[in-house]
Amino acid sequence: MDALPDTRQMLLHYLHDARESLLWKVDGLSERALRMPRTSTGTNLLGLIKHAASIESGYFGEVFDRPWPTPEEMPWEDRLDEDPNADFYALPDEPAAQILDLYRRVAEFADATITDLPLDAPGRVPWWGERGDVTLQRIIVHVIFDLSRHAGHADILREEIDGAVGLVPRATNIPDIDQDAYVAKLRAIAQQFPADDRTTA
Rank of each mutant, 00 (worst) to 15 (best):
R38H: 08
L12W: 02
P5L: 11
I174A: 15
W127Q: 09
V106A: 00
L22E: 00
L45M: 06
L23T: 07
P37R: 01
A33M: 13
F145R: 13
Q98M: 13
E73G: 06
G58N: 09
I140Q: 02
G152P: 03
L186N: 10
D6Q: 09
D155Q: 09
S148H: 06
E130R: 14
L117C: 05
D180C: 08
K50L: 04
I139R: 00
P126G: 08
P84L: 02
T41Q: 06
R104D: 09
M1R: 15
Q137K: 09
D146C: 01
T113M: 07
A33Q: 12
I55P: 03
K50M: 05
D81W: 09
L117D: 00
F145V: 11
F64Y: 00
E20Q: 10
F60E: 04
L157W: 00
S54E: 10
R8M: 01
L34A: 05
T172P: 13
R105H: 08
P118A: 02
D83K: 02
T113W: 01
E94H: 11
Y103P: 11
A154P: 07
G47S: 08
E56I: 09
I99L: 14
N44R: 01
I99Y: 03
P69E: 06
R187E: 10
I140L: 01
E108P: 15
D196G: 09
L102Y: 00
A33D: 11
P92L: 04
A86C: 08
A121F: 00
G58E: 06
G132F: 00
P95F: 03
